[in-house]
Design a protein around this nucleic acid. Sequence first.
DNA 1: AACGACGATGACATCGTTGTCATAGCGGAG
DNA 2: CTCCGCTATGACAACGATGTCATCGTCGTT
Lengths: 360, 360
Amino acid sequence: MREAPTTPDGRGTGRATMNDVARAAGVSLKTVSRVVNGEQNVSPMRMAQVREAIEALNYRPDLGAITLRRSDRRTGTVALLLEDVGNPFSSALHRAVEDEARAHGVQVLTGSLDEDPERERELARAFTMRRADGLIIAPVSSDQSYLATEIQADTPVVFVDRPGHGIPADTVLSTNVIGATEATRHLIAHGHRRIAYLGDYTRISTARHRQEGYLAALREAGIDPEPALIIPDLHTTPMAESKVMEVLHRTNPPTALFTSQNLITVGAVRALRRLGLHHAVALIGFDDFPLADLLEPAVTVVAQDPAMMGSIAAQTLFRRIDGDDSPPGEYWIPTTLIRRGSGELRPGSYPPHERRGESL
Amino acid sequence: MREAPTTPDGRGTGRATMNDVARAAGVSLKTVSRVVNGEQNVSPMRMAQVREAIEALNYRPDLGAITLRRSDRRTGTVALLLEDVGNPFSSALHRAVEDEARAHGVQVLTGSLDEDPERERELARAFTMRRADGLIIAPVSSDQSYLATEIQADTPVVFVDRPGHGIPADTVLSTNVIGATEATRHLIAHGHRRIAYLGDYTRISTARHRQEGYLAALREAGIDPEPALIIPDLHTTPMAESKVMEVLHRTNPPTALFTSQNLITVGAVRALRRLGLHHAVALIGFDDFPLADLLEPAVTVVAQDPAMMGSIAAQTLFRRIDGDDSPPGEYWIPTTLIRRGSGELRPGSYPPHERRGESL
DNA sequence: AACGACGATGACATCGTTGTCATAGCGGAG
DNA sequence: CTCCGCTATGACAACGATGTCATCGTCGTT
């Protein structure tokens, strides 16, 4: 095996170029290009020589240079901007996008937005400079019109989990309103009338929609929503936990809780445990989470399908990349109410201890 | 605002180039380059003209072209190859790498390996072609010598979670042996002598090391390891669940379980629940998981620190990228035994029902 | 008044690759 | 034997940017 070549001017990167291969094989640059790209009309002899040189020099094409020169300008990369690649929802979605991308021979660049609009702009800019072939984004800022340039430059954009604003683009969403309505209706059907809503920051569209669904179900059942039971702007587990503690200490506490998001659900579970009310106060959470079925009682949830959302978003994106220019669509991914126990508790189960052995 | 320019030959990408900006501003290409790169010696007047043109044309530099031409050849991208970006361990690690990368103005390309050596090669090749500035990988194949070319070409590689083979490189690992020894010792200290080991595929180095630690603790306590209690090659929750069911149905069942991985731990919890033995048989799992503290009993674990692993791996990588060429190092990230209840059960707690009220 | 230093600017080559075009060689039809 | 058409091959420009170098003008110094 030969040494890695160094260009005469000392700028050597330690990596062989197509030119190095050409020299080594004693053919022209273009012939190497033909072999590498599997083009017709190369004699078997040259072909063998070139392949041998490629092997010997350990040549690897430079995708940057290829992209620059090729007429289609594809980078074979798509960008994925999510809330936080470390959380279960985002990472499940990410994985589904990756699977779809793999099928297209495309790599995925990811970034976490952390509810930070500035970060959204930064990352969008970074990915623009990298000329990603497409962009899937769960937007956090209130205006995505800065992406208009991209779309105009033929880089498709797909919104996922949250709708975008200021530009038309394909959008993949959970049926948030319907799911929340269904959850609340389910609690009402089990006899509850004092149902608390615990939600994330109101600026987040999904939080608003879930609250909307909650209110719709109350209205439909002729229950007056009680302002004191509508508690938005919770974002973390500790925030939710302490708020739930407070709510349940009130003189006229709710008999059921509807939590609009994972971390809040977990906070509620912790609070109920600490108060020993986990078998007394009903609970339904929006968004499923691992081990929900192993808790005591198991937690009833409105499950989203992040994997499906990722798949659909990616499929839509690739269809656009492949030239589909029909009008943008909205894709609604259905949620599923999973009955596990916590959502089927009836009001007036106090004191909890008397009921303990009963369950199961 | 002006229309996006089209190059005369019709190859127009819809995106303005530096040349377009130069033409619009009535200056030379090089002057635009100077402005964009904030170089000295541009008159304020030209500067203003150029900025205006940039704004009007919505110019964005093409990172591919920049990388090709610049002498440092940086792409501002690092590659991260993990077991599965969708699982909690990988995604926590991913997030930590992203945070470190963000601090360096670098983007992260990710890929999931799914224990598939072929996939490892494919992705390594894809990232090589993209000329990532560095590579962090949790290897699955038995030989990474194919990466030697990369290292030689000055693209640093860092192994994380599992050691690499065939090339020297920085490596970031959990203290698997120590952690497993500690867990097993803890069970022994609580009176157990019949402790089952339930592990992942033996081909995975972490699984081997955890088994090693388990055996070391037994040996140290003068307990003869019982082959029937050493159960490797479990990889999924259902596999683990059914195996644990089987083991506990034996005539002389173990009084404690040590599970070497998350999914196995969850499988064990499910099996114990189904058999009603969750308060009778002790359990310690390797690797922490969300809600472990909310299960009944709460699950004692040997916690890893994936975020720390990601941080250290990324920091090491960036140090290398910045030119550090000291000999490769090994970084051991300590594990922590978290006592929560399941690991503190003593043998002979049958029947479980008598003890139920007692706990807490 | 002559000169050197320096600031501002642009011309041109270049990075690694592909697209376009030209051309040499060869076999077969007329 | 000539010419056509095809295959195999290479020369050269171009993609979008930066690095190098040359040039020109201005100003302070002697």
